[in-house]
Amino acid sequence: MDINRDDVKWVYPELANEPLVELLRRFKEYVLSDDAPEWQQLIAAAGFVNEVVRLLKWSEYRTLEDRYEEINVMSCDEIRDELMSAVNYHLEVPFEEKLNSMWRDWEFNDTGKYAKFDTIDEMNNFMCDCLEIEYSNLLELEKKYFRIDEE
């Protein structure tokens, strides 16, 4: 089976969700001053969460039919994955060509440079280490805020 080299990549544009990333960047707009009553901050925080949920790619997930309509649903893990994917894609885009080239080199063993990685997990960990050079503590922050190790 011939594989199209262009289809082999580590950075997938399908994971992009720039409206969501832009909203996440504006998080501070939803944080009211320390003088604001707690009830106002609760409304602002809930409004932010509402906007985040609204910007997820619901149509790409399974559909359930209730009595009156079809609705798209996601599990908690799928919501977390959707958020992580959007943020990670945004962080990876500046290095897309380099990362995809490294992944292709490993997949097709072009140079033998990555031959020491026997499994996808090993290469994936190496790629994550490369991103850590650009974004120090990236994985630790994701583990902490996305609660990855709590599963």
Rank of each mutant, 00 (worst) to 15 (best):
T63F: 05
E151G: 13
P37T: 01
M127L: 09
V93Y: 09
V49K: 11
K28T: 05
R26M: 06
P94I: 04
D105V: 07
K116H: 13
V21G: 05
R26A: 12
L138T: 01
V52K: 06
E14G: 11
T111A: 07
S59L: 10
L131S: 00
E22S: 12
A115W: 00
W10L: 10
Y30T: 01
W39G: 06
V8T: 05
E142H: 06
I133E: 14
A36G: 01
R62Q: 06
V49P: 03
K57S: 12
E150H: 06
D118V: 08
P37F: 05
E18A: 07
L139T: 13
L83E: 05
R54S: 13
T63I: 15
E14W: 07
D2P: 15
I133A: 14
R67Q: 10
D81W: 02
I79S: 08
D81N: 10
V73G: 04
I133D: 13
V21T: 06
V87S: 00
D129F: 05
M127R: 11
I79M: 14
L99W: 00
H90C: 12
A46N: 13
E122M: 06
W103I: 04
A115K: 15
E150A: 10
E140K: 06
E65A: 01
Y61C: 02
M102C: 13
C128A: 15
W10Y: 15
D149N: 14
N124P: 03
P13G: 08
S75N: 01
F146A: 15
L138V: 02
C130R: 10
D34H: 04
I3S: 11
V49T: 08
L24S: 01
K57P: 12
L23D: 02
I71Q: 09
D77Q: 07
N100A: 00
S75A: 04
N137V: 06
L83A: 00
N137Q: 13
L42Q: 12
S33E: 10
V87E: 02
A16F: 12
L32A: 10
E134Y: 14
D7M: 09
N109H: 14
E150S: 13
I71L: 10
L91I: 13
E69S: 13
P94L: 09
L42F: 11
R104P: 09
L42H: 08
